[in-house]
Design a protein around this nucleic acid. Sequence first.
DNA 1: ACTACTATTAGGACCTAGTCACAAAATCGG
DNA 2: CCGATTTTGTGACTAGGTCCTAATAGTAGT
Lengths: 198, 198
Amino acid sequence: MRRNKRERQRLLRETIEENPFITDEELAEKFSVSIQTIRLDRLELSIPELRERIKSVAEKSFADQVKSLPIEEVIGEIIDIQLDDSAISIFDVKKEHVFKRNKIARGHHLFAQANSLAVAVINDELALTTKAMIRFTRQVKENERVVAKAKVKGTNENGRTIVEVNSYVGQELVFSGEFEMYRSNIVKKDGVKDENSN
Amino acid sequence: MRRNKRERQRLLRETIEENPFITDEELAEKFSVSIQTIRLDRLELSIPELRERIKSVAEKSFADQVKSLPIEEVIGEIIDIQLDDSAISIFDVKKEHVFKRNKIARGHHLFAQANSLAVAVINDELALTTKAMIRFTRQVKENERVVAKAKVKGTNENGRTIVEVNSYVGQELVFSGEFEMYRSNIVKKDGVKDENSN
DNA sequence: ACTACTATTAGGACCTAGTCACAAAATCGG
DNA sequence: CCGATTTTGTGACTAGGTCCTAATAGTAGT
């Protein structure tokens, strides 16, 4: 039965790893052994009790919470959009977006906002950036609000859609970029928008 | 003492809000009342007990954990770096980096890796991207590993450092970009690295 | 078959951080 | 000073354990 113990402990470790919220009682049932066996196993594997496990998960998250913000499908909040024509999004620069030392926004966040808006404005299931020429014209600091404006300029010889994005803090241009976008269904500029709004 | 109760409950709410890991006993001491009073207060404010609070923090984080990955100071893992010369980082594309519909990596992550590497390779306290010409040459899919290689090409007429970054999946080029970087202390190419390694 | 050994199960005492219900004491406002 | 509100104390009970001791099962070696 040594083999069995090994195996059980291996599975026990994995089970708890993927669901730290499981009690000894539930584990005992799952492995068809007594609660005491589970406790011995935990002791041998030095896996702490339920409450301690939960606590450590909570503590870890609590420490990270401040600086980790999920990257949503669209970076920034879209406040206006005309498919295949133009779009506007806003993005508030928080402390998690800046360099610690000087509070200047990290470039890729501005790029992400613009790129994301360029993708969103394309009326197509599959829109991908193929090229971009970008320029960071002014440093953006913590707590500033960046407004990105995307404008679809037309289609080039390769059937790629050109989107121009300019981002502002107040009246000042902080970022500008020209994005060449690949799309699966080529639509003429001034083309009628279809009902594929999502 | 009605005033006092109100105030205590207000503070109680705030205290627990900012530190959910505090026990009734500690709270009782903090407000110089009995444990029972704290319990009545929690009851009135419908604040759950310590363990439930911790649990909910843990659950929330556990649910988010999968999809929210903290944006570290450098995106991707740097595996080699020669300041002011070259650097290499790897970035594993996980499900949180791709479009749900087609599993293609979102462009800004590749940009972020490259940009971040371009910043890192500059031997300067303050390095910022001012311009970039980028190209996404092949789609990157979930579970692929992107290796970005940055090479410092020199300094242009404006004192800006030019960094070229090429990213590969295996032998295939997936991204290439030329970054123009601003730096506070201009150093000649082939300049000796100073001891400012962090 | 007996012994040695590990593995498993059982039980009881104790712990923490509570819950709920009831009663008694303190305090405040009119 | 009185009544209402607020606070405190007490006792019984809970979940999900720890720690310790002891009994039982199962398996291998001689």
